[in-house]
Write a protein that binds this DNA or RNA. Sequence first.
DNA 1: CGATATCTGTGACTAAAGTCAAAGGATGGA
DNA 2: TCCATCCTTTGACTTTAGTCACAGATATCG
Lengths: 301, 301
Amino acid sequence: MDGGQIAAVRRFNRTVTAAAGALTDAYLDEDLSLGAARVLWELARLVDTEGGAPVALRLVRDELDLDPGYLSRVVARLAAAGLLASAVDPTDARRRLVAPTDAGRARIEVYDRRSDALAAGRLAPLTAGARARLVAAMGEVERLLAASSVAIDEVDPETDDAQHCLRAYYAELDERFDVGFDVTASLPVRPEEVRPPAGVMLLACEHGRAIGCGSLKFHGEAPAEIKRLWVDRAARGLGVGRRLMDELENRARAAGCRAVRLDTNASLVEAIAMYRARGYVEIPPFTDEPYADYWFEKRLD
Amino acid sequence: MDGGQIAAVRRFNRTVTAAAGALTDAYLDEDLSLGAARVLWELARLVDTEGGAPVALRLVRDELDLDPGYLSRVVARLAAAGLLASAVDPTDARRRLVAPTDAGRARIEVYDRRSDALAAGRLAPLTAGARARLVAAMGEVERLLAASSVAIDEVDPETDDAQHCLRAYYAELDERFDVGFDVTASLPVRPEEVRPPAGVMLLACEHGRAIGCGSLKFHGEAPAEIKRLWVDRAARGLGVGRRLMDELENRARAAGCRAVRLDTNASLVEAIAMYRARGYVEIPPFTDEPYADYWFEKRLD
DNA sequence: CGATATCTGTGACTAAAGTCAAAGGATGGA
DNA sequence: TCCATCCTTTGACTTTAGTCACAGATATCG
């Protein structure tokens, strides 16, 4: 990467933080500090993502990464102002459940209206065309920034995150294949087959959320086999699949494999295009996978 | 503008401030607080823009909008650490001149290297194509954000900013016209002609820097005349010209004019395209302007 | 059951960031 | 020359944000 790009990122950061800094003003409050207002706002967001039920204070602490003593006091202040209600968790009396009250919701409304006004003020001077271009460019920056914060790590195939990805993968196959997809009819991949030393499973995570996976089964000197490659629909087109493939191939190469193989279904057209673009070539069937239509191999020079 | 756009701007602000927040880490310093580090950095920037000579502390205060007491202490701390040198201004003993020392410059180098590393870390996980798209989108956001912070205000034609724009305008004409441009050969526009009540002059400013101008000469009931419309090259394509024209036409309409007129040179193709797009139609010459090739009029319904 | 770990709350701090008022020296205009 | 104004410094605060250690209640594991 060249220095011009680095300079561009830095210039962008400077401009945009200055512009977005004004956003802080939206959270100014007569009787609440900025920190308290932020906790209230984030709490409401957490409660909403959890379906509206009160959330454990512990979750808030983890999410915002705050000191327990500090958070305890902030919560006490919010409760005293009547903006937040808390109660002991009936399933675990050590925990405390918190949720914003109606008054708290009303306060958040105020912040939101002010934030909207600031955003609208940003857009107002622009012509409709420029406005559309700005919003589009912002979306692009956001998507790519999200992509750049995706980390790829080795994981045990029996962890919750890994299982979540596999379930999502099966669900998508079931939806896309004309005949549906039944895991039990497919060739099984047992956890121990994709766990060292027999294999490896990789997870792509964005801010701790698993959004993709891929695994590798070693066959000694013979070509290693790539299995269960999947990327969340919302994260496609950002190179996550490519990065997973890169890393899987690297692992195979490091393990001394001369080639990697995989099988795939004809309806997975984007995946097939990616395999071909990466140098995979079609070979005769090497598995009895009932859902497979194509078999590919790539030599790892 | 629709709510989706506002929501997009807000989402963008949230994402990007979080991402850029990490940038703060670049300014962490063993023996300097964040605020002090920032003052040092901004001071160096100011000194550089002023051509390397020490700048008045007063200027720093205005630029960063700090409390005099606070700044005084920060500067004292920086001076004690040997990062900044200060001296009484020989031309005005109330003022103090400050500049970073070599040690201060070295410290800033450290911040810059860390900032670069953070920016590079942002880009590293992306493929070359995604990287280029990100940098391009960041540039677009920056440009449009800059455009949205352009303010258009009425100004006296004899202020420095107005004169600066006119000089830049003449210089550009001289460069673009085949025969060059000589102000004294052109029809004069005296200040009082574009100052109320005879006329009006508008200035487009971005963060206090003048980047465009335009003026209007009233002729009673007869069509008003638009003169000296100019936008800085770096700010073109952002709708600044369009906004200046909008405002000039509004002023003419408010003054009871039924139409506006202007003359222009054949080499100013973008301007001519804009006039046509805005509904200006060619009319017979109504001035003796030697540099004019086209005369346009627009009816203000 | 007991040991150990977990979650929250309390007390006691600290550093940073900033505000306000007043003072002292310097300047510029009447 | 005098007076109002300007720039900087100093002292005396305040608020915010956060840290650290520990206590008390509760849960979990062996």
